[in-house]
């Protein structure tokens, strides 16, 4: 049997060595990891305006994504009254954290992408619940603040082949292009994921069979998430900036 003193000394030495090793490893890898994460998130945002990009996202290198984002995308942080918030960077706003705050205190990210002709596309972030866990997305809206230019969705744990199709099947987000956020009466109805086919060409997309709850989650997420942006949308529509 080893003495208690030996055991203590052994364990202390070993854990100290492990701690030093891991701290060193973190120090070495952190810059690269942060960059990779930024590229990943920027790709997700740019997917919403994929059609308007100079070239497809898949053909872009990481550096090209960073450059494009730097050149073409303006970042804004909005409060719930649609006013610009100083001191917050849109990219660093995490909606999952904002959702925990009282509604009045939340801050929303807004990205404005300018295409080759200088037309602005407003990219709004939404977050909601699917069947198993959270779902989220970026909604690109044209300058009229009504017509959808493109969307991208992602999810944490939807069923592959069913709910996960909101991301995996490009046909699903493609349906949202040129749908309208507002109805003729000027109410925000956003887009409904409807079972059994499209009834209203401006506001309906066809649901994925077998993924009813995820589909309803998308409908709910859009309606609620875009509602938060309404003060800002109204401002832009009225022509003010």
């Amino acid at each position: 049997m080893n003495s208690t003193g030996y055991i203590l000394r052994f364990v202390l030495t070993m854990t100290t060595l492990a701690a030093v090793l891991l701290a060193g490893m973190l120090y070495i890898t952190e810059p690269a990891a942060l960059k990779a994460e930024a590229v990943f998130n920027k790709r997700a945002i740019l997917t919403a305006v994929e059609k308007k990009l100079p070239k497809p996202l898949k053909e872009m290198s990481d550096q090209e994504v960073l450059d494009l984002f730097e050149d073409r995308v303006d970042q804004h942080a909005l409060n719930m009254k649609g006013e610009e918030v100083q001191g917050r960077v849109a990219e660093q706003i995490k909606l999952e954290q904002e959702k925990k705050k009282p509604e009045a205190d939340r801050v929303l990210p807004l990205f404005i992408y300018k295409d080759d002709q200088g037309n602005p596309y407003y990219i709004l972030s939404v977050r909601g619940s699917g069947l198993w866990d959270e779902i989220w997305g970026s909604i690109a809206v044209e300058a009229d603040m009504n017509t959808i230019a493109g969307v991208s969705f992602d999810h944490k744990a939807e069923t592959p082949g069913l709910g996960a199709e909101i991301k995996d099947n490009p046909g699903f987000p493609a349906q949202f292009v040129s749908k309208k956020l507002y109805n003729d009466e000027g109410e925000l109805v956003a887009v409904n994921v409807r079972k059994g086919g499209v009834a209203d060409a401006d506001h309906d997309v066809d649901a994925i069979s077998g993924a009813t709850i995820t589909g309803n989650g998308v409908t709910e997420m859009l309606r609620r998430g875009l509602k938060y942006y309404e003060p800002y949308i109204k401002k832009i529509q009225a022509g003010g900036k």
Partner: peptide
């Protein structure tokens, strides 16, 4: 943890 940190940096 070393593997995880390396993977995060190399292939996010």
């Amino acid at each position: 943890t070393i593997v995880e940190l390396a993977l995060k940096a190399l292939s996010y």
